[in-house]
């Protein structure tokens, strides 16, 4: 549904998106993940046809966004980040206006507006002036706006930003529901958001692609962060032995696990930037050192870094290169 090839977007001399390529297939719910200022909004604005690409091609449902902008925009429902609306209009007036603008046929307009309001849960405020709505409602009016012409593709820029936890849960529910009928691309800087609602994830940082795949594939990239062992014998001797191993940053009793009868759970973490091969060697040495220290090793299992840590590693290295996200040409 979306094909982004070698997309570059520059604001003056500042590069916001740098040679980004990814695809979104029909029926997928794809999370577009990256820290603030990674170029997410810029990319989505290009896809939605609001900004022109400096170079590279973007196709929406087979239509090039620069040469067949009209057709592409008709296939796409876009919800901008700040969810701007005309404050003086009532919700139902606004959505009817949007439906007409998006060329919903006159006879179907009422129905389309009503359906979209139902899906986005805003029917109860249909006759309220938008300027009087709370942030959560305005966000959902934006969602209804994106839905109103029943586009096959939805592009949502941070749909849960600024909402309270209950509203976030509601919106995620709505998005999961929408994923059954629409292809969805949603951006977020919150990892759990992706875990909650997406089938696939594209991670960018500093305008560049750093990872893409299903959540499981991404999770495989987690590096080993340390070692968890269960030993029988003298705890202090075990800790001393572990601390003597090269590559170990810290060793301490594992507070989360119960210890009794001279059986101790110990957790040690590797020094930062320890690669996989060194981590494996450090594991061998740690077990050897424990044995030499006269403690019996019952269990030894690698500890993987959390997804949050992985996200930090993937994006952190590039964050300096990209800098702040441009406000846009709007």
């Amino acid at each position: 549904m979306i094909s982004v090839q070698h997309l570059v977007k520059r604001y003056g001399s500042k590069v916001a998106v740098d040679d980004l390529s990814f695809e979104v297939d029909r029926g997928e719910v794809v999370g577009f993940l990256g820290p603030n200022g990674a170029g997410k909004s810029t990319t989505l604005r290009v896809i939605a046809g609001f900004l022109g690409p400096t170079s590279g091609t973007v196709k929406v449902a087979g239509h090039d966004i620069t040469t067949e902008s009209f057709e592409a925009r008709q296939k796409l429902g876009y919800m901008p980040e700040a969810v701007p609306h005309y404050p003086e209009m009532r919700v139902v007036e606004y959505l009817t206006f949007r439906a007409e603008l998006k060329r919903v046929a006159r006879g179907e307009r009422k129905r389309a507006v009503w359906d979209a309001m139902g899906k986005a849960n805003v029917r109860d405020v249909a006759n309220v002036v938008i300027g009087h709505l709370s942030k959560g409602y305005r966000q959902r009016v934006g969602l209804a706006d994106a839905l109103v012409a029943r586009p096959p593709l939805l592009v949502l820029d941070e749909p849960t930003a600024g909402l309270d936890p209950n509203q976030i849960r509601d919106v995620r529910e709505v998005i999961r529901e929408l994923g059954k009928e629409h292809t969805v691309l949603l951006s977020t800087h919150i990892l759990s958001e992706v875990e909650a609602s997406c089938s696939r994830v594209v991670v960018i940082a500093g305008g560049k692609l750093v990872a893409a795949g299903t959540m499981d594939e991404i999770a495989k990239k987690r590096r080993s962060a340390g070692l968890s062992v269960v030993v029988r014998g003298d705890l202090d001797a075990a800790l001393a032995a572990l601390r003597g191993v090269e590559g170990v940053a810290k060793a301490a009793p594992d507070a989360a696990r119960r210890t009794d009868d001279g059986v101790h759970a110990v957790r040690c973490s590797w020094q930062k930037k320890l690669d996989e091969a060194s981590a494996a060697r450090a594991t061998e040495e740690a077990v050897g050192a424990l044995v030499r220290a006269g403690v019996f090793v019952r269990e030894a299992s690698p500890v993987k870094s959390s997804l949050e840590e992985l996200f930090g590693e993937l994006t952190g290295a590039r964050a300096g290169a990209g800098g702040e996200e441009e406000e846009g040409a709007a």
Binding site: F50, R73, Q74, L76, P80, H85, Y86, P87, K102, A330
Partner: peptide, 16 residues
């Protein structure tokens, strides 16, 4: 429209 950002909604609809 540019200050409030509504121009973004407007121009991403299929309009010329």
């Amino acid at each position: 429209e540019r200050r409030s950002g509504t121009i973004e909604s407007l121009m991403t609809a299929p309009v010329s």
